[in-house]
Design a binder for these strands. Structure first.
Length: 267
DNA sequence: ATGACTCCCAGTGGGAGA
């Protein structure tokens, strides 16, 4: 089973790239962020024609998330229960016994700003909601655009960006608070090339210079962690014409039902 | 260097992103 996350920065613009990417990478589940579409404009027919079921939760102009899957989904949630959030940032569903949460964490703009305070409060709410959801669904994956570079090695120039948005101690502490629920950063379960990023600024030839940050993450619960066999960032779509500024991140889970069972009949 | 690019809604500019 493969699951992936991608901030597409406008699905209206990027739909052809998403369909091309799925044709080349037929993952079981894909969560999208920054669809930037109201629900009535969501291109579900095109996605369904590509062989995916889809759930979406959007709004005009900003934010917006979606959950694409090859197989049937149950227990769909849009937004976080208990948080009255006008911004469409969370979508969740259960696939083949795996709980999948797609999230678009607020950007926060600048430390000390109102938007930064919203980001911190939003992350507190996510942690509280997640603790409950995790108790209900132990086999859980939280993935999306976290807008947080968890460590210095996730930043192309840690000294330049120290204390700046995406890199502050406050944001990193909130990221660790999520992992302390028992969630592991799947990317760091494996040896990775140094200077691996998931986002590059559109400005300054940042992609060509590989000046980026790793802010898109896949966190896996303790119960699922033994099943994780790989995690990688796919930089190829960032080389497209009119690319998103983010690249997809993919995690591979071993199918436990395919493992030999002691109680299974054998010939 | 309060920049740079891209997207959106707007309406020949400005907010937001990260």
């Amino acid at each position: 089973m493969q699951l992936a996350t991608w901030n597409v920065n406008s699905l209206a613009v990027r739909l052809p790239q998403v369909l091309d990417w799925l044709a080349a990478n037929p993952v079981d589940v894909l969560v999208l962020q920054e669809t930037k579409l109201s629900d009535d404009k969501f291109p579900h027919a095109e996605i369904e024609a590509a062989g995916y079921g889809v759930q979406w939760h959007g709004q005009k102009t900003y934010n917006g998330v979606a959950l694409l899957s090859r197989n049937a989904v149950t227990a769909v949630n849009k937004g976080m229960a208990g948080l009255d959030d006008a911004q469409a940032r969370v979508i969740a569903g259960t696939f083949a016994g795996v709980r999948v949460i797609g999230a678009y964490v607020p950007n926060g703009q600048a430390p000390g700003s109102d938007k930064f305070a919203y980001k911190m409060a939003w992350l507190d709410a996510l942690r509280a909601w997640l603790a409950k959801d995790l108790a209900e669904h132990p086999r859980l994956v939280l993935m999306g655009d976290f807008n947080i570079a968890p460590e210095d090695r996730d930043v192309y120039d840690p000294e330049l960006l120290r204390g700046q948005i995406l890199c502050t101690d406050d944001e990193r502490a909130h990221f660790r608070a999520l992992t302390q629920l028992g969630l592991a950063d799947a990317f760091r379960l494996f040896e990775q090339p140094p200077k691996s990023w998931s986002w590059w600024d559109y400005r300054n030839l940042a992609f060509r210079r590989n000046q980026g940050l790793r802010i898109d993450h896949i966190l896996v619960s303790e119960a699922l962690r033994p099943c994780v066999t790989a995690c990688a960032i796919d930089k190829l779509p960032r080389k497209n014409e009119r690319p998103s500024d983010h690249a997809p991140v993919i995690v591979t889970l071993r199918d436990e039902s395919a493992q030999p069972q002691a109680s299974s009949p054998s010939s």
